[in-house]
Design a protein around this nucleic acid. Sequence first.
DNA 1: CAGTGCCGTTCGTCAACACGAACGAGTGTA
DNA 2: TACACTCGTTCGTGTTGACGAACGGCACTG
Lengths: 187, 187
Amino acid sequence: MTDDQTSAPLGAIAESLRRERTRTGLSLSEVAKRAGIAKSTLSQLESGSGNPSIETLWALGVALGVPFSRLVDPPRPRVRVVRAGEGPAITSEQAHFIGTLLASCPPHARRDIYVISMEPGAPRKADPHIPGSVEHLLVGAGRLRTGPADDVVEIGAGDYTTFPGDVPHVYEALEPGTWAVMVMEHV
Amino acid sequence: MTDDQTSAPLGAIAESLRRERTRTGLSLSEVAKRAGIAKSTLSQLESGSGNPSIETLWALGVALGVPFSRLVDPPRPRVRVVRAGEGPAITSEQAHFIGTLLASCPPHARRDIYVISMEPGAPRKADPHIPGSVEHLLVGAGRLRTGPADDVVEIGAGDYTTFPGDVPHVYEALEPGTWAVMVMEHV
DNA sequence: CAGTGCCGTTCGTCAACACGAACGAGTGTA
DNA sequence: TACACTCGTTCGTGTTGACGAACGGCACTG
């Protein structure tokens, strides 16, 4: 839906519906019942003939437990996964900040997984990333002050926050031994 | 599409359509003409009455120059924090396993971010997911035995592991209060 | 003041989506 | 073998979305 704006997603929806349904292991009848639609409707949609309404497709997304957009979004060409552990450590100029790439971002998947470790000290200022990028942070231990420069939040172990990565933002450890999982999401 | 899976997005679509149209400065008639739909249709959609088909909404997304999902997805707050223990819990049949969806997979990205909490007890067996899916696990506290049924590893706080999700695999907490970040990666 | 042009809305008509019933096929059971 | 059950598909019907025409309103022009 970002690139191939022109092609109507009818066929893609058909594939997605069948794929997500088989993933859950549910029958066509069962999914239709949970979604509150006629199973004949679902049958036609999965066969590719049909132009469902928003409400219909939304109900199916709920029944299948997947985000709505995943049904419209055609799956990308098969991508070989780059295993973690081989990611190089990305040391910062500040010695109290260490980032390790756990799983690099495969083509067309756009979330890099890092774990970062920080010690208390001067806040680490990060320059804006590419427009549209989003950061996710989940603290494993310690406390962390982070977020856009004008909207900083303080989170502790187990807490999660997400904020735009395309504006200046900061990280600051408040306790020794602070570490967090960071997922960098690109457009 | 990320959070309020239950609420039908009809009103949100109406708002999005009008918002994106005024953003471009185009008239309702002009947008309808570019999208190849009747302006009466667009008028009703912007007024909130209507349940457009996928093709109709897709054409509008093209005409407005915005990704399809942005019309369905109401804009989120910039910064979002999920405190430890909060968030939509996805409880399992085994009471000692709790999963919380932190960030569902945006279009074209294929990684959902969860945090799971487990207590010691019988190992939780997970059925295979769709072929090509990969799981990433990073332990925040406690100890965890996990992995494919024939290749289980034991990891502790701060440890990370990844393994294919398309084969049967297990999770077993070895200490009370075990929790971990899980990133589910789809094809 | 008519005349022109575009705005967004409302109304009647037609096509199509969603529905429910019925169907054939496959499976397990008495 | 007959029965009961669920599977997914096909068919006929009615509700509704999408269409085009006509409408009132507004700005500009002769």
